[in-house]
């Protein structure tokens, strides 16, 4: 099981999910992706869209002010 990392804290919708999606495509089923994103729109939308597209959101944790880590499994 491998883990990939992605920082989309500087991106805006929809590039946040575009980059997430492209990374998720690199994964094998069972692999996980750790994403750093900001609160607000990215935190609201990226995990939701990933869930809609059949991925599993494992955890969401506050890393530092306004920045969250979201872990998604393929």
């Amino acid at each position: 099981m491998s883990i990939l990392n992605l920082d989309i804290t500087k991106d805006r919708c929809p590039m946040t999910f575009v980059k997430t999606k492209l990374k998720l495509e690199e994964l094998e089923p069972g692999d996980t992706l750790e994403i750093l994103l900001t609160a607000g729109e990215p935190l609201n939308n990226v995990p939701r869209t990933a869930t809609e597209q059949g991925y599993t959101v494992l955890e969401t944790t506050l890393v530092k002010e306004n920045i969250y880590k979201v872990v998604i499994r393929k």
Binding site: P14, M15, F17, V18, K21, L22, E25, T49, Q53, G54
Partner: peptide, 13 residues
Amino acid sequence: YSRHIILKEVGGK
């Protein structure tokens, strides 16, 4: 192609 890539049926692939 961002609006294609975010579609489940398209994606980067």
